[in-house]
Design a protein around this nucleic acid. Structure first.
Lengths: 282, 282
DNA sequence: CGATGGTTTGACTTACCTCAAGAACAGTGG
DNA sequence: CCACTGTTCTTGAGGTAAGTCAAACCATCG
C-alpha cells in the first residue's frame, strides 16, 4: 500500500532460498528476513509439508479454514459441484501460488480442491500467519497485497468470460496457463504440457469439451498451434494474443497478423481495411 | 482468521454510529473503539467525504491507488472499456461497501468507476489505513477478511456466469441486487428500484439488453415479477431463487414450484393465495 | 412540442450445445 | 509384447438459446 505501483511482470520469482525455491513463502519470508535475519521462522512455517498423489483431494466444500496452502510443485484445481453433478472449475493453481485465500473471509472453504498431478505443498497455519502479520508489517502488507491481486485477477477473468467468445477465452486461458507454468518461449514458440484434461479446461471457461476440441483443431489447421495429447506448442503466440484480446469478430485482422502483414498496411489508425469493411458491413 | 467460521447472513449491519450508519467503516472503527474508546480517529478517517452527481466519474483506468472508497449513499459501477468501445461491467457497489480493494495489490486501478445515482462517499486514505492496521490487529484482520470475502464473492460469480444460462444469471443478479440494496421482503414480495440501466445489467452478466428484456417480459407473463421502468417487484422470490440455483434446464421443476405443489402439498406457510395459484397455473 | 435515450418487440442468424459414435490413448494384466 | 478395458479426445449432424439488426414504443426533459 505504501509501496506503490508494482510492475505486473515482477512476479514472485525469488532467488533460491533455503525452503521453497521460487515460491511465495520465501517472498513473504524475505520481508521477515530483512528484519530478523534468521531462517528459523521459515522452518517453523514450512514444517507442515506433505505430498499429494494425482487425484488426491486436498479439501472439500465446507471444510474449515486451517491456513493457506502453498504449492511447491504440481498443479491443483478447485471446483464446485452443481446439483446436476457437473464440476464448475473455479480455478487452477500452479507452483508458487497460494490456495485458500478466499476462505480467510468466511473461515470456511466453499469449494473442493484436488491435485491434477503429483504435488508437494505446505500448509501455513492461520495462527502462524496471524502472528507473523502482527510482528512484521511487511508481511501483513504482502499478504493483503496478494489477496488484493487475487481480486484483480478474478475481475479480469470476469471481463474475459463475459465479453468474449469461445475462441478468445480459450486463447486467453492457454496463454495464461503457459505464463503461470513459467515456460519460456524458445524460438518464438511456446511449448508446455497442459496440466488438466480438456473437460476441466472447458468447464473453467464455461464451454464444452467439444467446442474446445474443435477450436484447437481449427487453430492447428491454420498452423497457429500444435497439440499431441497434452503436449502443446503455440507456434504463433502473437496470433493467439491477438485472438485473446479481441471481443468482436474481427476475423480478418487476425489473419492479417498471421500472414505477417503489419498494422499499417491499409489502415491509417482505425484498423479497418477494405476487406473488413466488406465483412463487417451489414 | 483466529475468529473462525462466520455466518454468511451475519452481514455488516452495524448499529448507528456517529459516522456512516450501516457501513463498513463503523464496523472497522468498532474494532478500534473497543481498544481506543475515542471517536477522534473516526473523524480523521472520514474527513475526506464528498458527494457525487449521477454520471460523475470517480476514477479512471490507470489512476493510482489513493485509498479505499466507502459508499455511504448511492450506487456506483466499475467497468472496463473493450477496444470496440463496449463497456464490460465488472461490478456494482452499494451503500456500505468498499470500492478499490483490487487496486491495493497493484497500486493502480484497472477499471473506471462512475456513479449511477447521486452518491455520498468518503475516501479512507491508504496511509491512514496502513497506520490503523499497524496499530490495531483487529482492523488488520477485518480488512484482510473483507478482501478475502471479495475473492469468495467473485468465485461464486465465476460459477454463476460460466455454468448457467441467461435466465439463471438474471434471476441471480436481481436477487443479489435486492439483497445488497437491503430491501425488505414485505408480504412475500420484494420491491426495489433497479439502480442501473438494463444495458449495464446485461453487460454485467455477459448478455445483451434484448435478452434481458425478453426474459423479464416472460417472467412478467408468468406472474413471477412485475416491472414498470426501473421499479421492480419480485412477486415470487422462491421461484426466482429456484431459477437462480439451477444449471440444467429443469423447466418442469420450476413450474411445479411456481404452481405451489412443493414436496409437501401446496406449502402451507409459503403464503400463496388462491388468486396467485389461479394466475400461475400453466 | 420535438428530441433524446432507454426499453420493448420482431425477424433472422449464428455460435455454441447436445447427443452420439468413432479414434486415439493409457493402463492393466495375461 | 500384445489383447482388453476404460478414459480422454475428436468428429459429425442437428437443435436451440442467445446474438444481431432494425424498428416501434415510451418515458423524460429541455
Amino acid at each position: 500500500m505504501s509501496e506503490k505501483t508494482r510492475n505486473r511482470s515482477e512476479r514472485w520469482h525469488c532467488g533460491a532460498r533455503r525452503v521453497c525455491p521460487k515460491c511465495i513463502i520465501s517472498n513473504l519470508l524475505t520481508s521477515v528476513f530483512l528484519v530478523e535475519g534468521s531462517g528459523a521462522l521459515a522452518q517453523q512455517l514450512t514444517r507442515n509439508s506433505f505430498s499429494m498423489t494425482v487425484g488426491q483431494t486436498l479439501r472439500r466444500e465446507g471444510d474449515p479454514f486451517q491456513g493457506l496452502i502453498l504449492i511447491r510443485k504440481g498443479v491443483l484445481k478447485t471446483f464446485m459441484i452443481s446439483e446436476d453433478g457437473g464440476e464448475q472449475i473455479i480455478d487452477f493453481r500452479f507452483p508458487g501460488e497460494l490456495v485458500g485465500l478466499s476462505a480467510m473471509g468466511t473461515g470456511e472453504h466453499m469449494a473442493c480442491t484436488i491435485a491434477l498431478s503429483a504435488a508437494d505443498v505446505c500448509l501455513i497455519r492461520a495462527e502462524d500467519l496471524d502472528d507473523l502479520c502482527n510482528t512484521y508489517p511487511d508481511v501483513r502488507r504482502r499478504l493483503l497485497e496478494l489477496t488484493a491481486r487475487e481480486v484483480a485477477r478474478r475481475e479480469h477473468l470476469h471481463q474475459a468470460l463475459c465479453g468474449t467468445r469461445a475462441e478468445c477465452r480459450l486463447a486467453m486461458a492457454l496463454l495464461n496457463i503457459a505464463e503461470r507454468l513459467g515456460v519460456a518461449t524458445v524460438d518464438h514458440a511456446i511449448s508446455f504440457q497442459l496440466p488438466m484434461a480438456r473437460v476441466d479446461l472447458a468447464a473453467y471457461l464455461g464451454l464444452t469439451p467439444e467446442t474446445t476440441s474443435r477450436q484447437l483443431r481449427r487453430w492447428e489447421s491454420h498452423g497457429w498451434l500444435h497439440t499431441r495429447g497434452r503436449d502443446f506448442t503455440i507456434r504463433e503466440p502473437d496470433v493467439l494474443h491477438a485472438l485473446a484480446s479481441r471481443h468482436s469478430s474481427d476475423e480478418e485482422g487476425v489473419h492479417r497478423l498471421a500472414r505477417g502483414d503489419s498494422e499499417c498496411q491499409w489502415s491509417p489508425d482505425s484498423g479497418l481495411g477494405t476487406d473488413e469493411l466488406a465483412v463487417n458491413r451489414r
